[in-house]
């Protein structure tokens, strides 16, 4: 086991990616300790970064038009992203993996129907799909998780279905079938472990895309309702005044880009290391 982990923790790409991603996770967990101010409290409007708070202390990244401290909103915004992106990605995985295993293992009519609907959903440009869903069911935290699940489960379904079809044709699965192993046990204990490599890479990327989706919906004003601190919504709110006060929009954009960069580097590094290990064995 130690031998398997070593190449990962010595790969610089993995390390930088992990530092960025887990850094934001750390910020999200310890937000109340790290944030200098209450993220939804009005203190003094439109202070520039580094300006002194009349009541003592400084606004490191300035304040927004409602007088809320931007650094504190960014820190609590990490919480919003971590909670909602993880939740939405996990539910998408639950649906995608379950259906993918079923379709890839049983094939036949079940597979045909599921694959057809996956293709139909995938023929929507993602943002169009989300906008239509939000128009129909409205914008709320639960509905955003629902929309993301609906939008990303088909892609996960396809990956899992492909791997399952490949693995299900192997001898050890045939052996398990002959032994009278139940289908769900084969899927969970024989097929799924073989899919963890590609799925881990996909999970990192998809987590990032989900964070971007939630940010983009916030930017379009279709995201989480105010005053929830959300990076995309911060950009949307600050947009009208961005020429005079660029700090309103630049810091939230740096936050979301650095998180996505961390997750892409992590995914890239994981793929690189697992490819190299695959070549050696």
């Amino acid at each position: 086991m130690r031998k398997a982990i070593l190449p990962y923790i010595t790969n610089p790409v993995v390390v930088i990616g992990a530092v960025l991603s887990f850094g934001w996770l750390f910020v999200a967990i310890f937000a109340p300790l790290l944030a200098p101010y209450d993220p939804i409290k009005t203190i003094a409007p439109l202070m520039q970064p580094g300006a002194a708070n009349p009541a003592g202390g400084i606004f490191v990244l300035g304040t927004d038009m409602l007088g809320r401290d931007i650094l504190s909103r960014l820190i609590y915004g990490a919480r919003t992203v971590v909670v909602f992106a993880t939740l939405a990605t996990l539910t998408a995985y639950l649906v995608g993996v379950t259906l993918g295993l079923i379709a890839g293992y049983w094939r036949g009519r079940v597979d045909a129907v599921l694959s057809y609907f996956a293709n139909v959903v995938l023929s929507f440009p993602v943002l169009v799909l989300y906008i239509v869903i939000i128009v129909v069911i409205g914008s709320s935290p639960f509905n955003i998780v629902l929309a993301v699940t609906f939008g990303s489960a088909p892609a996960i379904f396809r990956i899992v279905r492909g791997i399952t079809m490949d693995v299900a044709s192997r001898d050890y699965v045939a052996a398990a079938v002959t032994q009278g192993e139940r289908a769900w046990r084969i899927m969970v204990f024989d097929v799924l472990p073989n899919a963890t490599g590609p799925l881990a890479v996909d999970f990192c990327l998809r987590l990032g895309y989900t964070a971007i989706t939630i940010g983009t919906l916030g930017f379009l004003g279709l995201g989480l309702p105010p005053p929830t601190p959300d990076w995309g919504t911060m950009v949307n709110e600050g947009r009208a005044m961005a020429i005079a006060f660029p700090h309103l929009v630049i810091f939230p954009c740096i936050a979301i880009s650095s998180l996505m960069l961390g997750l892409s580097l992590l995914a890239d590094g994981l793929r690189e290391v697992s490819d190299a290990q695959g070549r050696r064995t």
Binding site: G208, I212, G215, T216, F219, G232, V235, A242, P246, V249, I250, C253, I254, I256, S257, M260, L261, L263, S264, L265, D268
Partner: peptide, 18 residues
């Protein structure tokens, strides 16, 4: 390319406009 594929559209709009 890993940088440009990590920046969401609205963020690159902000950066380029800045």
């Amino acid at each position: 390319s890993i940088l440009t594929t990590s920046i969401p559209d609205f963020a690159s709009a902000v950066f380029l406009s800045a």
